[in-house]
Design a protein around this nucleic acid. Structure first.
Lengths: 216, 216
DNA sequence: ATACGTTTCAAACATCTGTTTACTATGTTG
DNA sequence: CAACATAGTAAACAGATGTTTGAAACGTAT
């Protein structure tokens, strides 16, 4: 169940819609398909969420808030631990990646593969109408992690740092969206949904990419 | 003009469709919008390209073939130059990235920002019906570059190498799709469409990420 | 000039889209 | 029991969708 503040019907719509949106994108899914697959009446979407855009926005905002909340909590805790000092670079990378690729079941119990794919997709091809949601519920946490990273690369020109950081974030989003068919992408050598391997490799990858050749 | 084997009408459809598909995705663009924006009759799409799927597939396949052709040519030339030996890692990265991020005007004169975005988008969220096109016109060149890279990382377990390589490719695709609004993504610090900066930073980024810590 | 293949066009086609309406069921509160 | 808000439903709505049709316009070669 996605958000248990809704009744059975509303919740079934949410989980079904999240899966379908993650798979086929916003424009690629019709309300008739969502409601049919969820086994509820067509009008249920408009009754509970007023319209299609609001349904999509609500799902996405909910997931983004979950992700950002965990990231900001962990970052705040790490900064408190170091007395406002410098959080280790590898830890910042983990704060960015772990809640996305392998969310802690005890903290985000409903954040599954579909949520990951939905976010990966929405973050890569943002629809105009959800720019406010991204600005409010996603970018702040990414920016704060970026600031924490910046302390490790003071000699890097600002623009170069941002390019590098955007590559790291881009690779992460791509990994989140691609995790579900790594098997075909690698002709069977990597397993699907192996989030542990994804996280382990991404950590090494991002740390190496960020720490290299700081001065240039 | 995209493919000059078509008449004026067909060519206008192609360029307009490429731009719109790149911006709004396959399902997000209607044939009426394409034809209206191109200033041609609605039926022109079905007359010249039989249906919407074929139009999209044709555009994408054409761009993928351009990209793969340049990559394979450059790789073959580099391998010939080294006598079948090992092509420098930095050069392989450049072979992957440069035709994508900053294609040579003299070789790919029509491969512009819209083409880049279209590919970045299509590669990130592949629609089912274009899997054959990707398998035929894209993955071979990526796989060959991967093989060339592999020689530089012989100690890395196969799965770890593939993870790392997929992160690099993912970052590249993401960069290709994001290049057009880096300005907003970086609150003005990076310019839009600055493909030179993107390429320069990506080279350093990918080389560092790939060469680090080979043995683990 | 006439015939012919190609291209373009307006109009219609059937289907699918998101959304709204009016109605029924349900469970809760006075 | 009556009143009521909430939840769910079938049917219809207006408009958009991809696609097809049949005729008109065009250029070219006979």
């Amino acid at each position: 169940m996605l958000i248990d503040a809704y009744g059975e019907t509303g919740a079934k719509v949410l989980t079904t819609a999240e899966t379908l949106f993650a798979e086929y994108g916003y424009a690629g899914v019709s309300l008739r398909r969502i409601t049919a697959e969820a086994g509820v009446n067509l009008a249920a979407v408009n009754y509970h969420y007023s319209d299609k855009q609001s349904l999509y926005t609500e799902i996405l905002a909910y997931r983004l808030r979950q992700l950002s909340s965990v990231r900001l909590d962990r970052l705040a805790e790490a900064e408190a631990r170091t007395g406002g000092g410098t959080v280790p670079l590898a830890e910042i990378v983990d704060i960015l990646a772990q809640p996305f690729l392998q969310p802690d079941e005890s903290i985000l119990p409903t954040f599954g593969p579909a949520s990951r794919r939905l976010l990966g997709r929405a973050l890569i091809e943002p629809l105009g109408f959800l720019a406010p949601v991204l600005a409010a519920d996603f970018q702040p946490a990414v920016a704060r992690c970026g600031q924490a990273l910046r302390r490790h690369l003071p000699a890097l020109p600002p623009a170069d740092f941002l390019w590098r950081y955007s590559f790291v974030v881009g690779a992460l989003h791509h990994a989140a969206a691609a995790l579900h068919d790594m098997k075909t992408l690698t002709t069977g050598l990597c397993a699907n949904e192996d989030s542990a391997a994804a996280l382990r490799n991404f950590r090494r990858f991002a740390v190496a990419a960020l720490t290299s050749d700081e001065s240039r």
